[in-house]
Structures are given as C-alpha cells and as structure tokens.
Design a protein around this nucleic acid. Structure first.
Lengths: 146, 146
DNA sequence: GATTGTTATAACTATAATGGTTACAACGGT
DNA sequence: ACCGTTGTAACCATTATAGTTATAACAATC
C-alpha cells in the first residue's frame, strides 16, 4: 500500500480576509455593524470578530463603540488599502514574510554568505507583494459588490 | 500589571531558505556534498536536509546518489530561479499564499461577494511576489559569495 | 561476501499558531 | 437597574514546524 502525506505550508491567516470582510461591512452598512452581525456575515464566532476588530482599532482603521455597539471607519474607504489591513492583522517578526534558518556555519563560505545575499532578494519579493496590496483600496473592493 | 501577548503569523517556512542554501552548496562545491556535509553548513540535523533534498529531487532540481552519497544539479545554476525552489518546497493548497474563511453568509451582499472580489486582488499580489522570485537565479546568488 | 558510509523514510517529540468556544467583567444607553 | 454590547481571559483541538532516533536500502571497497 502506498500512502501519501501532503505537507501543507501554513498560509497567510484567514484573519486577513476576515479583516477585509469586516471593513467592507462597516463601509457598506455603516450602522448596525455589531460584532454579532458581522459574525453572522462572516459565519464565525463573535469573539473571532472582536479579536480582529481589536487589531483594526489598534491600527487606527476603525473606531468601536463599547457598550453601545457598532463600529465606524476612521479613514475614508478610498484611503484604506489592502496593505493597511494586511499590516494591521499580520503581526510577524520584524514584518518578515520569509524565515531563515538560524546560525549557519560561518566556517563555510556558503553558510557565511547565504543569509545576507538571500535576504535582500526576499525583501524585494515581499516588497513586490506589498506594493500590489497597496494599490487596492477598500472603496475599489466595495464598488464591485452589486 | 500589563502583559502583552505577541501573536506571530506563521511565516514562510525555513525550508525555503534551507533549500536555497542546499542548492548553493551543490553549485559551489559540486563534489563532497553529502547530507551530513550540508547539514554541517546549515547547522541542523541531516534528516532535515534529506527531507528537503527529497523535495528538490521530486521537483527535478537535483539528482542524489544513494549509497555513494552526494548530489548534483539537474539544471544549470542560471536556469534555477528562486521561484523554482519556492515551488519545490512550499507545497500549499492549490499554491495559494492567502487563505479565506470558509462559508461566508450568502444572504449578506458583502458575504456573498467578498471572496470572489478579494481573491483576484490577492492573486495579483501573490503573482507580484512570485514574479520577483523568478527574476533571481541560483547563479546570481552564488556570484555574490566571495 | 562482509564492511562501511550513505540515502530514504518511518515514527516520535516539543513547540507554536490557528480557529474556535465559554465565561465574565466593563461599558453605555434606555 | 436592566440589557445588549464590547473586551479579554482561559481553554481546547487541530495542524505545521523542526528536530530526533532508528532502521532499511543502497553502492562502492576491501
């Protein structure tokens, strides 16, 4: 018998897509956007929404009304980019998308040089992705809903 | 007392940087590149190296000599790009970097549309990163070692 | 043919992020 | 005071990662 084990890389968390979903809701339906209402649209637990809302709040993207309920944008939808949202919810070490194995052998000419040389290339790749994210605004997204 | 919990996004695995390290070694020191030797340069366990070598082999990038030991490139270093290596070791679901929360509420105009609209934007961002990775070859990297 | 060093792989571990859940305190109108 | 909401803490199951030990298969050499 042959068994195949598929190794899956951890992808970028659904937090990001949920955060965009949240902001879209607040933009399109500015009133009545309570955590429970949003959770109903996303189809998840309200606590998940509140957690992500907390990140968006900390990033200055939304304002939440405790007690009363509901949220509103702190920027115009045309001034919120996907990169803003990505940065708000994807808290990675030093904002690095790629990881490096630590402590390569400095006695080896390759081990000594690889990280510095590779790091600059990967920074470029990450920057390319982020620049593309920065080109899309929340208003561009919501304009595509009918 | 205030405690702060830093949530870290899973970044792209060190497999990728280790794989580039491995290929660089095979390119620069074509002989004597056994798993143990490579593991000594990367500074990790030989099994980690063999596992990644298996992925590189499956992707047609290297040829490994069982029994005898050692490996050699199956393409010229100028024909191996970082994207080739990335694809070889980062086996994600449908090659998607970004994840989506499943089953949004189709009763909601936002929940109904968000995925389709957002997905095309994120595909563009991922493509931008991959295109940048495709611009760097193994030979360009090794040329920067002294 | 036995020895030796290597590759291939299974099985296991510890760690950590994810996504979800329950529970409860704090808040702010009515 | 009540009620619905927000803000968190605590906990859980799942999963990928990175590493380890062990063992079988392999190929050259003695």
């Amino acid at each position: 018998m042959v068994t195949t084990v598929v190794i899956q890389l951890k992808q970028i968390s659904t937090r990001f897509s949920i955060a965009v979903h949240i902001l879209s809701l607040v933009a399109v339906i500015p009133h009545e956007c309570t955590g429970d209402f949003i959770a109903g649209s996303v189809n998840t637990n309200p606590v998940i929404i509140r957690r992500i809302m907390g990140m968006l709040k900390k990033a200055g993207l939304v304002e939440v009304r405790p007690g009363v309920g509901g949220a509103s944008l702190r920027k115009r939808p045309e001034d919120i980019t996907l990169l803003d949202v990505y940065r708000a919810v994807n808290v990675t070490d030093e904002n690095q998308l790629f990881r490096f194995h630590e402590d390569p052998n400095v006695q080896c000419p390759v081990g000594r040089n690889i990280e510095l040389v590779l790091r600059s290339e990967l920074m470029e790749a990450q920057a390319a992705m982020e620049q593309r994210l920065a080109q899309t605004t929340l208003s561009q997204l919501t304009a595509k809903f009918q």
